[in-house]
């Protein structure tokens, strides 16, 4: 048995993934989300839609929140990519992760990794955001469970705890 198409040409992708340098042979057309989930086995990155609609796949590229499902992996050459798995250090969740847990900013949890990464990006550039700033920063991330109220409370609690 062999695949239909010959293997597409791959190039060596060098990047920093969750703080560690990494090299992988990656085809030009591979999406960042597929690279992270299938190659790097970081399944905390979720796919909720058919491309750029829901924000569940949000990761940080050089600290900026981007939807990994409409980003090519090769665009991350020499850049730093962070996923939800990279936040907790030595198994200790960050203030933001703890706040989402304790304030029930997560219910089914499927949007949560993307939501937390979008909020992480916000808090890094703006440690004391207003409610309106939180709403703007997270407006690309859909949640179907919470009605968003407790997500806002979670981000606010994390901001208070770290400032």
């Amino acid at each position: 048995m062999h695949a239909l198409n010959p293997q597409p040409r791959k190039r060596l992708l060098r990047l920093t993934l969750n703080g560690r340098p990494r090299e992988d042979a990656v085809a030009d057309g591979v999406l960042l989300v597929d690279y992270l989930r299938e190659v790097a086995q970081l399944t905390g990155v979720k796919t909720g839609c058919d491309g750029g609609e829901c924000g569940a796949c949000t990761v940080l590229v050089d600290g900026e929140a981007v939807p990994s499902c409409i980003t090519l992996a090769v665009r991350c050459e020499d850049r730093s990519v962070e996923t939800i798995e990279g936040l907790a250090a030595q198994g200790r969740p960050t203030q933001l992760q703890r706040a989402f847990h304790e304030k029930l900013g997560t219910q089914c949890g499927f949007c949560t990794p993307g939501m937390i990464m979008a909020a992480e990006s916000l808090l890094r550039r703006n440690p004391t955001p207003t409610e309106a700033e939180i709403r703007t920063a997270l407006s690309g991330n859909l949640c179907r469970c919470t009605g968003y109220e407790k997500i806002i409370e979670s981000v606010q609690a994390a901001a208070r705890a770290t400032s």
Partner: peptide, 19 residues
């Protein structure tokens, strides 16, 4: 009480079907 499976969700450890 926070959900007993909440930590797995906020850390990305929770495995959904596609994971």
């Amino acid at each position: 009480v926070p959900l007993i499976d909440g930590i797995e969700k906020v850390t990305g450890r929770a495995r959904y079907t596609a994971d």
